[in-house]
Design a protein around this nucleic acid. Structure first.
Lengths: 192, 192
DNA sequence: CATATAATAGAATGCAAATTCTAGTAAAGC
DNA sequence: GCTTTACTAGAATTTGCATTCTATTATATG
């Protein structure tokens, strides 16, 4: 029961990401202007500025993580490539969340003043991805460095050529694939 | 004539970059604490917070630009590769400036409130790099997108795996080279 | 319809950081 | 050694933003 919220979390989080990407900082007044929400609602719903930012980050990261881990979990020969391609695809299908992940930094959302509960959630998420990467490295016989390069660094660098201003073109996937294979081949620490 | 400054610009700029990378924001009090400079000196030397940030960015970008353009200017077969490698090399030799370039964003330093003179300088620098890339694309027969991918996006993504916390390992150069060649080969818009 | 609950709303407050301002200090030229 | 010039220094002020607080509005349930 009780009154229903008029403005969705999604809208607020997207506005925060957009402001951070374009201005370099988020102000609550800015969010009020961008979304029409009131200061009172912001504090009622998110507790504090830090809480709001932390939730926005967690929302974006966990959504992406689901796809990235699912791709890796396939476990077959091309699992790594699918994980690499998860980044450009995410940028097209979840643009607002991708802007938070690709155009901002964790430090913009997660700070010492972040509520402990949120801080713990972030740690769990980060650990999970790190572990999955580690596991994939072991299974595929490649070094962790090569996996991070081909599945994280190159894809991120690629989409950042376009976000936040432009759409990520389809042919970025070709470059990501080429970069992924190159990283795997260049793997000086390969074990197989 | 006149009194000599005791703390070098370089030191102040590096502190600004370090703070931005680790905390996500720069405060003048933070710079005072990190470098020992006084508030009065900051305003005397840089005019304003915006002026200071703009100068720090310009210092970092123009230093990098010199190397990047020099590599491209060689003009031979491997000029593109040398330009791609300029990024990891810069990270090792000019770490403080590299942190500003690789771990921060232009928007953190250049804003609407940036002094017009500095704004103009930044525009000139950006245009120069864009033109050189464009020229290299034409000369080498590759698309501009492929050149930006292999010479900017992949190298940047690669070093960001390590900066600002760790040194950029030597083998990153191998991945950057592999990524560069992959981008050139994957070039769907190649003209030769 | 009455009541409890949850959300909206925005003016008032407090705080942290940027900026201003006045005084003091070191180097170079005459 | 005197003057000019450029830099240092930090207290006082202002400003912009986060946060608090009280009132109000909308929905669900009995």
């Amino acid at each position: 029961m009780g009154r229903l919220s008029t403005i969705r979390d999604e809208t607020v989080f997207a506005a925060a990401g957009a402001q951070l990407a374009s201005e370099g900082a988020v102000t609550l007044q800015g969010l009020v202007a961008a979304t029409g929400i009131s200061i009172g609602s912001l504090y009622h719903r998110y507790g504090s500025r830090e809480g709001l930012l932390a939730q926005a980050w967690i929302d974006a990261v966990s959504t992406f993580q689901d796809r990235f881990l699912a791709a890796l979990a396939a476990g077959d020969e091309e699992a790594g490539l699918q994980a690499a391609l998860a980044t450009p695809r995410f940028c097209r299908e979840q643009r607002d969340r991708a802007i938070i992940l690709c155009c901002c930094r964790q430090v913009d959302f997660i700070a010492p003043a972040t509520p402990p509960a949120n801080l713990q959630t972030v740690r769990t998420i980060n650990d999970k991805v790190a572990a999955a990467l580690q596991a994939h490295a072991g299974k595929s016989g490649h070094s962790l460095a090569a996996c991070r390069m081909g599945m994280v660094a190159f894809p991120l660098g690629a989409v950042r050529l376009y976000l936040p201003g432009q759409a990520v073109p389809e042919d970025v996937d070709d470059y990501v694939e080429a970069g992924f294979r190159a990283a795997m081949n260049a793997d000086t620490g390969a074990r197989s």
